[in-house]
């Protein structure tokens, strides 16, 4: 039966150490739930990459293009010559381009963040309220009862203050 083991730790070092041991014992689906971002996570759980940078990059490019198209295209739709300037003038339109580049870059970053962090949450997920205060939780998905026992042991050995079993959707 699939279930999750959750260990609560009093500090980041213990939690990270536990996560490292679990990883070493062959558990792949590990999560740390912490009140602050931990800086040693990547060394323990492996390098993370995210798609956000692609979102930002392409968002900015699309923004830049659409910025210039907005300014130049609308100037052409209804010709109203002003001040002896051409209809399509570069210096002013580049400013519009600049602003739209940044606007779309920002919006795409937000989109990329929401998608890659899987937010907003639509279904209930494993969560412990203490982890928003001062507890550092390690959750591990266990495929079989054997795995669960093994994981519980490792968590206790690493100094977990509390170890519980959680099935997603049932709350705590």
């Amino acid at each position: 039966m699939a279930s999750n083991a959750l260990g609560l730790f009093g500090g980041p070092n213990a939690a990270l150490a536990a996560a490292g041991k679990l990883k070493g014992a062959g558990f792949e689906s590990l999560d740390l739930i912490t009140p602050i971002p931990l800086h040693g996570v990547e060394e323990v759980l492996g390098k993370k990459t995210s798609v956000i940078k692609r979102f930002t990059f392409f968002g900015a490019i699309i923004g830049g293009l659409s910025g210039f198209v907005l300014a130049a295209g609308t100037a052409v739709l209804y010709l109203h010559p002003t001040g002896g300037r051409p209809i399509i003038t570069f210096p002013p339109f580049l400013i519009i381009t600049y602003e739209m580049t940044i606007l779309f870059g920002i919006l795409a970053t937000v989109l990329g963040f929401l998608i890659s962090a899987r937010l907003p949450v639509l279904r209930e997920r494993i969560y412990v309220p203490e982890s928003a205060v001062d507890k550092f939780a390690v959750t591990v998905a266990c495929a079989a009862d054997d795995d669960f026992k093994r994981a519980t042991e490792i968590l206790r050995e690493a100094g977990a203050e509390e170890v519980t079993e959680i099935t997603p959707g049932s709350g705590r």
Partner: peptide
Amino acid sequence: HCDAAPCETVCPVSATYH
């Protein structure tokens, strides 16, 4: 009625033009 009128370019809504 300047042919290079400074007033025309600045209007954000094109209320003045040549």
